[in-house]
Nucleic acid binder design. Structure first.
Lengths: 338, 338
DNA sequence: CCCTGGCACTCTTCGCACGCGAGTGCCAGA
DNA sequence: TCTGGCACTCGCGTGCGAAGAGTGCCAGGG
């Protein structure tokens, strides 16, 4: 087990390295933090920390930099989440309150996160699967062609075309619309299938084909998870990464373009609080030199989607975690209000 | 006026520079292109071209590179649009045909353009203003709260909440819905305002307030140009730009994040064909070292939106223009079918 | 009049040696 | 267990010289 002082040394190394972006040596450490011991002692501690794999040196005769393992320990044990200051909180709230619709909420959230953390922000649109149905609408576009519109409690709207096997009268349409809504409005997506199961039986034989088609389209829409979309912003912040540029930034940009990758990334974090995945903890190898800080957010108590930031492993973890958490909280509030 | 041979020299310089990314000297030119003259002659021509501002040299004793003005001449006079090969055309068509809805069409188009040109692709969603109305739907969410859904001929769906000044009955709602659709369905956005002007008069005094509110929301939606959205892809291609990295890529990424900037950029190109804006011809200074190749596309004969690519001024103009034109054409077809 | 070969000149780039300084590891002593 | 001292390692910046690419200019020839 590492002594208390060694942990302090590790903490100091992480803080200094994040601040200066340069390997930190024993002398500089003792000068900037009053550890009460000499550089030589710190050197011994450093040797021990290196032995354990928490820090490393880029070349012999350079200072030390934290490893992924070192950052992990720092995040888990040595640092808390730095809360946002009241003025910052107000600014967040004001900025988000100006949003006019769901797209705008998401867009503003992305900008906000990118600005606050000076990193790349990723916000997932509120997912369908955990939401509830607010309303289902059916429009007749042509005698045998309907449009199905699904509105969720988070304000998201999905529409689908339905080609009917047979013409469908206005009266039947109104009937179906009414029955459908009385059964599913306000219900959770997961419950819908069993609630509409026997619906075709209430209709004439002629109309049953169409009703079934509509229902299956509806169910399809509900489960269609790959419709999950997300918005990204602040990619310009990637240019602050390092000096060894193209190599670092290229794979990250590529990973960011693969929405599937990002969705998987966000999906993996099951923790109810803020989740941090550091460097090689990210499955995708393009993101091996980045850390992802994410958290779920939602309109009620429950999380319906995730948001987070992607940045260099050398990031200000407490600050970033604080910003992510605060933004998620306020977005949740905004969604609940609208 | 420049002699024929000097134009050939300029063309050769552009082609070589685009290929090698390195300043091209007189000797290399005569070797790679059989101009039938000696390096010394080419040097004289180069001096003349430099005098006129078509080419420049980075340092005193380096080869020449084209200036923005040189590229401009090249694009206007020296090179045509390189058509896509039949296999490429088939690939484009196949790729786009798999799309399931408008979002998907746009997303696929972005990917396709980015891959074909190996540059950053920008695709504007089909704009509302020049489209026609397919259907307007009104849903009652609460006694005094409606949802207005607008469906366009390009498959785009816009929805808005409407808070009514007074409760609005189901019968009135059905009435308004029917009247509204019979007037505006199939009509162009621009014509809608005059078509619905006198609609409130057909209703009871009680309902007129609500009807007016609905109408003004509808008109608002129609003109709301800033709702114009676009999708970007292929930013990873920026890493191929050059070696002098952060400086070049940073402002470009920033410009790309400013959707307003991009929309303005695309909007400026009035040419019915493929438009090329080179280097400083772009108003936004972050894009001063890039060229933008754009073209309008649409479901019918008329353009309803733009798409294009952003890349280094040193790009393969004929190939890029060919790709952009081909993609626009096929997207138009897809939109017309759906 | 235009093209060509030759020549001197300019600059960038690369390799190399050198010295500096930061930082380390280790050891003996308190 | 901590400390001060000391020798050692290496990366980095600097200066210099050679090499190479490319140019501009000029005089001669078709």
């Amino acid at each position: 087990m590492l002594s208390e002082r060694r942990l302090q040394v590790l903490r100091a190394i992480v803080q200094d390295y994040v601040g200066t972006e340069e390997p930190v040596g024993s002398k500089a450490l003792t000068e900037r933090h009053n550890l009460g011991v000499s550089p030589a002692t710190v050197r011994n501690d450093m040797a021990a920390l290196e032995e354990e794999g928490f820090i490393a040196q880029p070349h012999t005769s350079a200072g030390r930099i934290p490893t992924d393992k070192g950052y992990r320990l720092f995040v888990d044990k040595l640092a808390g989440v730095k809360p946002m200051s009241p003025p910052e909180r107000r600014a967040i709230q004001n900025f988000l309150e100006g949003a006019v619709d769901l797209d705008d909420v998401v867009a503003r959230t992305v900008r906000l996160l990118a600005q606050l953390t000076r990193q790349v922000a990723v916000v997932q649109y509120p997912s369908l699967t955990r939401s509830t149905v607010r309303h289902v609408e059916l429009l007749s576009l042509a005698p045998a062609r309907l449009m199905l519109v699904l509105i969720t409690d988070t304000g998201r709207v999905e529409q689908r075309m339905v080609d009917c096997p047979a013409p469908f009268g206005e009266a039947s349409l109104a009937d179906l619309r009414a029955r459908l809504n009385s059964r599913v409005a306000g219900r959770r997506f997961a419950d819908v299938p069993s609630l509409v199961e026997d619906l075709p039986e209430a209709f004439d034989t002629d109309d049953r084909g169409t009703v079934s088609t509509v229902l299956s389209t509806l169910l399809e829409t509900l489960v269609e998870e790959n419709e999950e979309r997300l918005m990204i912003g602040g990619t310009a912040n990637l240019t602050r990464f390092g000096h060894d540029f193209p190599l670092t930034i290229r794979p990250v940009l590529e990973a960011l373009e693969e929405q599937v990758v990002l969705l998987k990334l966000l999906g993996e974090a099951k923790d109810p609080g803020v989740t941090v995945r550091i460097g090689h903890e990210n499955a995708h190898e393009g993101l091996n030199s980045t850390s992802v800080v994410s958290v779920g957010y939602g309109s009620g108590g429950e999380a319906v989607a995730k948001l987070g930031v992607v940045g260099p492993t050398r990031m200000d973890y407490p600050g970033t975690m604080g910003a992510v958490r605060a933004v998620a909280r306020y977005v949740g509030q905004i969604l609940a209000e609208s």
